[in-house]
Amino acid sequence: CHSECLGNCSQPDDPTKCVACRNFYLDGRCVETCPPPYYHFQDWRCVNFSFCQDLHHKCKNSRRQGCHQYVIHNNKCIPECPSGYTMNSSNLLCTPCLGPCPKVCHLLEGEKTIDSVTSAQELRGCTVINGSLIINIRGGNNLAAELEANLGLIEEISGYLKIRRSYALVSLSFFRKLRLIRGETLEIGNYSFYALDNQNLRQLWDWSKHNLTITQGKLFFHYNPKLCLSEIHKMEEVSGTKGRQERNDIALKTNGDQASCENELLKFSYIRTSFDKILLRWEPYWPPDFRDLLGFMLFYKEAPYQNVTEFDGQDACGSNSWTVVDIDPPLRSNDPKSQNHPGWLMRGLKPWTQYAIFVKTLVTFSDERRTYGAKSDIIYVQTDATNPSVPLDPISVSNSSSQIILKWKPPSDPNGNITHYLVFWERQAEDSELFELDYCLKGLKLPSRTWSPPFESEDSQKHNQSEYEDSAGECCSCPKTDSQILKELEESSFRKTFEDYLHNVVFVPRKT
């Protein structure tokens, strides 16, 4: 048989008469490798580009789960590009990614509803959504962080984005990388972005840091009482949809009607710091009717980097990364020049730590249904340095008659930039024990000054392991946590139920 035959053949030295091919099969003959313009397919066939392209389009058009959109890589027609490569849609070739590779997620039936953290986790790592997304989240724990972890990498949506009755959302900033909504599939009414009845939605994105392009379709905003109209108009300008909307697409009466839409800028007039305090004062603000001013709200939190936005980490279910302080308005003076500047002394802060701070007014709604208010920009203030805590785990070892090696770990709280350490030492008198000992005694162990690591005695271990207080009263049991108490109650309830079950099964009433 021919060298490319495997198993047997019907005619000697003829690659077209093989029972099976050793390498690849091409047009009725066995070959060692697939010549151009053919590609290896499933490690035994040679196919042309049209064959591989037909497989790709067949799966793409069917949208069946589990099928493969075949691509070409290293002269092979394979189910998908290997790690580190992405497909070129024009020629199906796998090309190296520039940075992290995109991950295209194809949605069944063309859309997916995100109504819980669990459903959001199914899209973790996706960068391109081939379909439409509907966000409908009523509640949950730590929602802002969970949504950002699972949806934060999405850069492109081919269909539309719909935010509907998501009472738990305060902001859409968890879509931190969303840059493009194509609108290839539109919501009824030709809408590519749809926001309806979101009672706590206050911000779409921080438009000073976020760009969003909507290729096709219109915007729809109705019944978002805490979303200011200025935020919607800003989205029109940034996304390129200005002029597409009709009169009733953006409701003037049901958007922002319960919001404090600040239209003035508060400026800080005085800032002073110490290692654990920050004193702030800002310019006074009074609405047209000074009785509408209820006070100020001061927001602050630790910020290692200057990239904080107002609604980071917030949701309507209680999660809030900001510390909020309510401040009463100052006494009002008739003389504008003698107006008191409101302020606040922030206490209990960490030394040498940068804080993000902003302040906003708290006002009631005027009778004319106009909203007044003022808010400052987010500023960054760093507390002063102070003395560091003591170095940890000092170790001293003498390696000769004239040297001592000293080692330690950095302090747990540096409280500033540590530039150097101060080492103090003092000579001590020799131990009298060394002169009084009889060095001729056998088995004498000389006193040693070398360091030995501390260890816990058996008594201390027994005390720590004991669940009861000892007789001397030195140790006591740790208080039980809520989960331990709940577990004990469940076990007790189970024992009672099981005992009742045994009584009912074992003891049967005697027939009379």
Score class of each variant (00 low, 15 high):
Ser400Gly: 07
Lys177Pro: 01
Thr273Glu: 04
Gln121Trp: 15
Gly256Tyr: 06
Trp352Thr: 05
Leu298Pro: 00
Gly183Arg: 01
Ser366His: 15
Glu264Phe: 09
Tyr355Pro: 00
Lys162Val: 11
Tyr300Ala: 09
Leu123Trp: 04
Gln199Pro: 06
Pro410Glu: 06
Lys226Tyr: 04
Leu204Val: 09
Asn136Gln: 02
Ala259Val: 11
Ser401Met: 06
Val359Trp: 01
Ile135Phe: 09
Glu231Phe: 12
Ser338Glu: 08
Ala149Phe: 15
Lys218Thr: 14
Ile163Gln: 00
Glu264Cys: 06
Ile154Met: 12
Asn255Pro: 07
Gly243Val: 01
Lys103His: 08
Ala356Arg: 03
Ala374Val: 09
Asp115Ile: 06
Thr215Val: 07
Asp115Met: 07
Ile134Arg: 06
Glu187Ala: 01
Pro288Ile: 06
Lys253Asp: 03
Ile327Asp: 01
His106Val: 11
Lys162Ser: 14
Leu392Gln: 07
Gly139Trp: 05
Ser401Glu: 14
Leu180Cys: 12
Arg281Val: 15
Lys337Phe: 07
Ser398Val: 07
Leu349Met: 07
Gly189Phe: 07
Ala195Val: 06
Tyr300Pro: 00
Glu264Thr: 06
Tyr223Gln: 03
Ile134Lys: 02
Asp257Met: 02
Gly131Gln: 01
Leu143Asn: 03
Thr383Leu: 01
Asn340His: 12
Gly110Arg: 07
Glu246Trp: 02
Trp282Lys: 00
Ala316Asn: 05
Phe299Glu: 13
Glu236Val: 13
Thr113Glu: 13
Gly125Lys: 05
Leu252Gln: 12
Thr213Gln: 14
Trp322Phe: 12
Asn224His: 10
Ile250Asp: 14
Gly256Glu: 11
Glu246His: 05
Tyr194Ser: 08
Leu345Asp: 12
Cys228Gly: 05
Leu349Gly: 01
Arg138Ser: 11
Pro411Ser: 14
Ser319Arg: 10
Val104Thr: 06
Thr386Arg: 11
Ser119His: 03
Trp352Asp: 13
Glu236Leu: 02
Ala374Pro: 15
Gln306Leu: 07
Lys360Asn: 07
Ile357Ser: 02
Ser208Gly: 15
Gln245Leu: 04
Lys234Arg: 10
Thr353Cys: 15
Gln354Asn: 12
Ile271Arg: 01
Ser269Lys: 12
Gly313Cys: 04
Glu236Phe: 07
Arg347Trp: 12
Gln121Arg: 14
Trp207Tyr: 07
Ile163Arg: 00
Leu153Phe: 11
Ile271Tyr: 06
Ser401Arg: 06
Glu148Arg: 13
Asn399Ala: 10
Tyr355Thr: 00
Leu219Pro: 09
Asn263Pro: 09
Asn198Thr: 01
Met346Ser: 05
Ser192Cys: 03
Leu293Trp: 12
Thr371His: 09
Lys234Glu: 14
Asp328Gly: 12
Asn141His: 01
Gly373Ile: 12
Cys126Val: 02
Gly295Pro: 07
Arg291Tyr: 01
Ile181Ala: 00
Ser389Gln: 08
Thr241Asn: 09
Asn136Thr: 15
Ile357Gly: 02
Ser376Leu: 01
Gly110Phe: 08
Ser260Ile: 04
Ser319Ile: 07
Phe193Lys: 00
Asn150Ala: 05
Tyr372Pro: 13
Leu406Phe: 15
Leu108Asn: 14
Glu148Cys: 03
Ser338His: 06
Ile379Met: 12
Gln199Cys: 03
Cys228Arg: 15
Leu151Thr: 05
Arg291Pro: 15
Gly348Ser: 12
Asn150Tyr: 09
Asn200Ser: 06
Gly217Leu: 01
Cys228Leu: 04
Pro336Ser: 08
Tyr167Ile: 14
Asp393His: 12
Asp115Cys: 04
His233Gln: 10
Leu133Tyr: 01
Lys162Leu: 15
Leu201Met: 02
Leu107Ile: 05
Ile137Arg: 01
Gln245Phe: 03
Met346Val: 13
Lys162Gly: 15
Val363Ala: 15
Thr273Ala: 04
Asn248Lys: 07
Ser269Ile: 02
Ile395Gly: 05
Gly343Thr: 04
Thr127Val: 03
Glu310Ser: 15
Asp257Ala: 02
Pro410His: 09
Asn211Gly: 09
Glu264Gly: 08
Met297Pro: 01
Ile327Ala: 07
Ile379Cys: 13
Leu151Gln: 00
Gly243Met: 12
Asp289Trp: 14
Leu153Lys: 06
His341Phe: 09
Val324Tyr: 14
Asn307Lys: 05
Pro394Cys: 15
Met235Val: 12
Leu133Gln: 00
Lys242Asn: 11
Ala120Asn: 01
Gly152His: 10
Asn255Leu: 12
Lys226Ile: 11
Glu262Phe: 08
Leu331Met: 11
Glu302Ser: 10
Gln258Cys: 14
Arg202Leu: 13
Leu298Val: 04
Leu108Ala: 13
Leu280Gln: 00
His222Leu: 15
Tyr355Gln: 00
Ala149Pro: 04
Gln245Ile: 13
Ile232Ala: 10
Glu246Met: 12
Pro336Lys: 08
Gly140Thr: 04
Thr118Met: 05
Pro330Trp: 14
Leu178Met: 09
Lys103Asn: 02
Gly139Val: 14
Cys261Phe: 03
Arg202Lys: 12
Leu229Gln: 14
Glu184Met: 03
Ile214Asn: 06
Ser400Arg: 07
Thr273Lys: 09
Thr323His: 15
Glu264Pro: 14
Ala259Ser: 08
Asp292Thr: 14
Pro336Thr: 08
Gln339Trp: 06
Gly256Leu: 06
Asn211Val: 08
Asp312Val: 11
Gln245Tyr: 12
Leu345Thr: 03
Asp384Ser: 02
Ser239Glu: 06
Gly189Asn: 05
Tyr355Leu: 01
Asn211Met: 12
Gly243Glu: 13
Phe221Met: 14
Lys162Tyr: 07
Val390Asp: 14
Ser376Pro: 00
Glu109His: 12
Ala149Trp: 14
Arg291Met: 07
Tyr191Thr: 12
Tyr191Ile: 14
Ser333Asp: 08
Lys226Gln: 10
Asp393Val: 04
Met235Pro: 00
Gln403Cys: 06
Arg244Glu: 05
Ser400Ala: 15
Tyr167Asn: 11
Cys261Asp: 04
Asn150Trp: 13
Pro304Arg: 13
Val381Ser: 04
Thr309Val: 11
Ala356Asn: 00
Ile135Val: 03
Asn248Val: 06
Cys261His: 04
Ala251Lys: 08
Lys253Met: 07
Leu147Ile: 14
Ala251Arg: 07
Thr127Arg: 08
His341Asp: 07
Leu153Ser: 11
Phe193Tyr: 05
Gly373Asp: 05
Val128Trp: 15
Thr113Gly: 13
Pro391Ser: 02
Tyr305Gln: 00
Phe175Pro: 00
Cys261Trp: 04
Ala195Lys: 00
His106Tyr: 07
Leu265Ser: 12
Trp205Cys: 02
Pro410Thr: 06
Phe220Thr: 08
Leu151Val: 14
Leu227Pro: 00
Ser398Phe: 02
Trp286Glu: 12
Leu107Tyr: 03
Ser230Lys: 11
Lys253Trp: 15
Phe193His: 01
Ile134Val: 15
Ser166Val: 07
Tyr191Ala: 07
Ile114Glu: 00
Ile114Asp: 00
Leu133Lys: 00
Phe268Ser: 01
Gly140His: 08
Glu283Ser: 09
Gly110Gln: 12
Leu279Arg: 07
Gly131Asp: 01
Val128Thr: 10
Gln216Ser: 05
Trp352Tyr: 13
Thr127Ile: 10
Tyr380Thr: 08
Leu201Glu: 15
Gly125Phe: 03
Lys375Thr: 14
Thr273Asp: 02
Leu161Val: 05
Gln403Arg: 13
Leu180Thr: 12
Leu161Arg: 00
